[in-house]
Write a protein that binds this DNA or RNA. Structure first.
Lengths: 338, 338
DNA sequence: AGGGGTTGAGAGAGCGCTCTCTTGACAGTG
DNA sequence: CACTGTCAAGAGAGCGCTCTCTCAACCCCT
């Protein structure tokens, strides 16, 4: 009978719903949580009351009472955040958010400060979070792997070394081999590669994929130059490749951004793509289509990765056992550079 | 004296700290929350106990007891999330996360499904969240503005129409005028512009800025073509501009991506940048440096925007009054295209 | 010395839920 | 018809905190 004319309407609680429906709090709780053992007639009355007062469960109370956190944290190491303006990150987040949106977990994000890592650790270990996802570029980064011992964690990309218990990744090696085979199938025989940094798993694996496809075809795998995944480094690597004097008619580049760099050099030397040199990239990011001719590349299903990461994490939290390693399938996107 | 040999160590609570320090729970709470009226001697003892048991406050309990949510939500409308692989988004998030990391608020993210908007509404209005941030591309989007009546909200970018109470943005108009003046100062007199969509505030404002600088210089403002902020649309607009037959020696483009498109057309016509036509872009994104010659552009401080949004939101939550509109200063980055 | 004021710490009542335990209703059994 | 078994709903004790109130101790002033 309280009217509360004092401005801010009181937030509806379980109690109010219970009162309105003429049942106990426990019953309302059962209805809200879909416990089957509730008489359908009563449940209907409760649901109606919920609608009537516009009830939304209080997450804090729920989490407190159930002794179960209802949020999941996405950790971005600070060093990664510096190269943050990266579509990769945005897409992973998107995938994660999409998946979690269907669950009862809430997604929160922290940038893990390198200056005070204990802060993040305390947050994660303080029982406030059901599990964590790590998106790191600097994959050598072991700082987080050992937390797997305490809370469920899933990593984006194969971490260097052991450490991580669960991660999802694309099969970089197989995809790179596939890309190289496409070049081979086009009749190219002088196939070079611009590889990524060899201290990062994608850099390593993509190079290995190229090598294995070359070996398969009985070709030499010596035309390798390295970049650091930036456009400028791709251009430089291309210059070195061309500078060696050896003929090149095919090129596999470990990411699209470096491929765009290679394009500029190729074109400034008057080499036509794909007539003179065919090129295949990796990632299928915005560079692939903004370049001319549009780049044939390996589609990296980043959103799917994010979804899968979230899915695995939730499984882990809920005690289902899952595969430690999940490989997302890639596909070749054929455009005009090959 | 409980030993709890049962595996999972019991999470330390306020109570345990209090017992160890020989004080009441209330006192520990005061120490944790930096309430000044605690004897320094006692406070020290408490802090020591906190360290000893490795105590971290339980956020759910805290939020429940204080009747104050401790998280802030970043809303990304689903339509926006589709163009999510956008450095803009990542940078805003970065800024927001950096700022919030220094506060007691936790950042959570939702992708607002267009199919069931009530879900997001319920989440926001259910008292689970202290405030919200909206990052939307489709700025006409009124779906969220009216929630400002119920919880603190801050928007990224000037929304179309009234609606939003608080937003932070760059002064697009002034910045565009400044960019145009740079062209003018360089002695260019036939200055064209490639404008953005006229149903988006940045598109409108940047065009207006160009117009006002032109007017200021007593020049005609008729060489305008429109794009939709994509590279391809920039190229098309450039083609139309050139196709008109009117001489062009300066060009202001409403974003860097379209400028990159314009570059390709300019260069394919054999026009030299900047000798034949000087160009200035807007945003200072990765296109600005990946293009040749490097693009002179307006630096859009996106991370700062994110930080500022978070700052304003926190102020709002805590009842401090703030300016409704915050303009972040921009600067011109002089490179080689002018 | 006694009254008022200040200051620092404890007591204890919740915050809105969940979940175990208990109760009550009813059906099935010998 | 008493007895057990089953199932649905209620009672009530917390979850880990915050915060108002109360109280004790001490200071200053007249």
């Amino acid at each position: 009978m309280k009217q509360d004319t004092s401005g801010s309407r009181p937030t509806p609680t379980l109690e109010m719903v219970a009162a309105l429906a003429g049942v106990s709090r426990a019953t309302v709780s059962r209805v809200v949580n879909d416990v089957p053992s509730v008489d359908e007639h009563i449940a209907a009355k409760v649901r109606q009351a919920i609608l009537a007062v516009n009830y939304t469960p209080n997450r804090a109370a729920r989490s407190l009472a159930s002794r179960r956190p209802n949020s999941v944290t996405l950790i971005v190491p600070e060093s990664t955040s510096k190269v943050f303006a990266d579509p990769f990150f945005a897409s992973v987040v998107q995938g994660v958010a999409l998946y979690l949106g269907e669950t009862d977990y809430t997604l929160n994000m922290v940038i893990a400060s390198e200056a005070k890592p204990e802060k993040t650790r305390a947050f994660l270990l303080g029982g406030n979070v059901a599990g964590a996802l790590v998106v790191s570029h600097h994959v050598g980064d072991r700082s987080w792997t050992h937390l797997s011992d305490y809370i469920p964690m899933v990593f984006a990309g194969r971490p260097l070394g052991e450490g991580a218990r669960y991660y999802v990744d694309v099969d970089n090696e197989a995809a790179a081999a596939g890309a190289t085979r496409l070049l081979l199938k086009g009749g190219r025989t002088n196939i070079a590669t611009i590889a990524g940094p060899q201290d990062m798993p994608p850099g390593i694996d993509r190079l290995n994929g190229w090598r294995s496809a070359m070996a398969e075809a009985g070709l030499e795998d010596s035309m390798v130059e390295y970049g650091d995944f930036t456009l400028a480094s791709g251009a430089k690597a291309m210059r070195r490749l061309l500078g060696s004097g050896r003929p090149v008619d095919g090129l596999f580049v470990a990411n699209d951004q470096m491929a765009a760099g290679a394009y500029t050099v190729l074109q400034e030397r008057g080499l036509r793509i794909p007539q003179d040199v065919a090129v295949v990239g990796f990632d299928d990011d915005s560079f692939a289509t903004s370049v001319n001719p549009p780049l044939t590349t390996v589609h990296h299903p980043i959103i799917e990765m994010g979804k899968k990461m979230a899915e695995i994490l939730v499984d882990l939290i809920e005690g289902k056992d899952t595969e430690r390693v999940t490989q997302i399938p890639t596909s070749l996107v054929i455009r005009e550079s090959v």
